[in-house]
């Protein structure tokens, strides 16, 4: 099957004006400007198959949003090519724009002073959605997100979580086949986050929409995605399964021990790297190959109240990925 999203060598560089210090510097800047070339995205290639749900991860400034904006056709790349739904996104063909949507957690597209329902109605007209289909989709979505009662309220009077739900509805009204999400849960409380995750998951199950999502919340990623693409400094550093990410970068197991003596023995560091220490409890990072040996040694030596072995949380794994993909500083 033809990939629904494909990027090949996608590159975007920005020329950023370097402001000099002080008034004298500002005056000199009027005559001669200094620019710095910033490579926001540097030769990224990947393919996404129809119906996939992919997380796009990276630290701040890694180039995630820039990539999403190129795939949406908002900005033009300096090099490389991309195809989404068979179209070159930055040509902004109407047929392409009718079949995809972008949700940005930090920007809103709804009219601030009007009820969300007015914005939805305007959407219907711009996208030319047939009336009965519009009513049905809107009904389904407001029910799914539990916001039936809020659509008549001015958007500026909604809470952040409610507003985000409305944004999501606006993005889904025309039933896009590709959905790009940039930090859709940013700043939301856990309840609202879970509601958005649930909506996305159900929507994906029902309609098989292809989704590419960036998020700093690993909960979003774990709840939704099987596949992860990690970029750092504009370069792709990992593309594969979520489990594979832990295997490749996590490698370590996390051993949590609570000692019956009420305090952690001083020589605990012999057994593994201490990740966290708290009263009688300690978390050790241990090589999976040595788990049996280390557990045996600890149990034999100290009275233990509780012990467990887990995979490190995704947050820790991802931090490790980011750290390891940092270019060596000379």
């Amino acid at each position: 099957m033809e990939p629904i999203i494909s990027a090949a060598g996608l590159t975007k560089t920005y020329r950023v004006f370097q402001k000099r210090k002080g008034v004298a510097g500002a005056l000199r800047g009027l005559v001669k400007r200094e620019y710095k070339e910033v490579r926001a995205v540097d030769g990224i290639s990947f393919n996404i198959e129809p119906g996939e749900l992919v997380a796009f991860l990276g630290p701040n400034g890694a180039g995630k949003t820039t990539t999403l904006k190129m795939l949406s056709g908002l900005i033009y790349p300096n090099a490389g090519s991309a195809r989404v739904l068979g179209y070159v996104p930055w040509e902004r063909d109407d047929a392409f724009r009718r079949r995809f949507a972008l949700v940005m957690g930090q920007k809103n597209q709804l009219w601030w002073d009007l009820p969300a329902s007015d914005s939805f109605e305007l959407h219907r007209e711009i996208y030319g959605i047939p009336s009965d289909q519009f009513k049905r989709t809107l009904g389904d979505l407001t029910e799914l997100l539990n916001v039936e009662k809020l659509t008549r309220q001015a958007v500026r009077e909604l809470s952040l979580g409610e507003r985000m739900k409305m944004e999501l509805i606006a993005a889904l009204l025309h039933q896009p086949q590709v959905l790009l999400l940039d930090e859709p849960t940013i700043g939301l409380d856990v309840v609202a986050q879970v509601a958005i995750q649930k909506c996305l998951r159900e929507y994906h199950q029902q309609r098989g929409v292809t989704m590419l999502l960036t998020s700093h919340y690993m909960r979003d990623v774990e709840a939704l995605c099987n596949r992860v693409i990690v970029i750092n400094h504009g370069k792709l550093v990992y593309d594969g399964g979520l489990a594979g990410l832990s295997e490749r970068f996590g490698r370590m197991k996390l051993v949590k021990i609570e000692f019956a003596s009420g305090s952690v023995p001083d020589d605990i560091e012999r057994f593994g790297e201490v990740a966290h220490r708290d009263g009688p409890g300690v978390e050790l990072r241990v090589d999976p190959a040595r788990i049996g040996e280390i557990l045996g040694a600890i149990l034999e030596r100290y009275p233990v109240a509780d012990i467990s072995v887990t995979d490190p949380p995704l947050e820790q794994v991802i931090t490790r990925v980011f750290q390891e993909s940092e270019p060596a500083k000379s």
Binding site: K69, S72, G73, L74, R92, D94, A95, R97, R98, A101, L102, M104, K107, Q109, I126, Y127
Partner: peptide
């Protein structure tokens, strides 16, 4: 502010 984004995404003459 970058709010132009959403206008450019609509299937209609920019």
């Amino acid at each position: 502010s970058g709010d132009l984004d959403f206008l450019l995404l609509k299937p209609i003459d920019e």
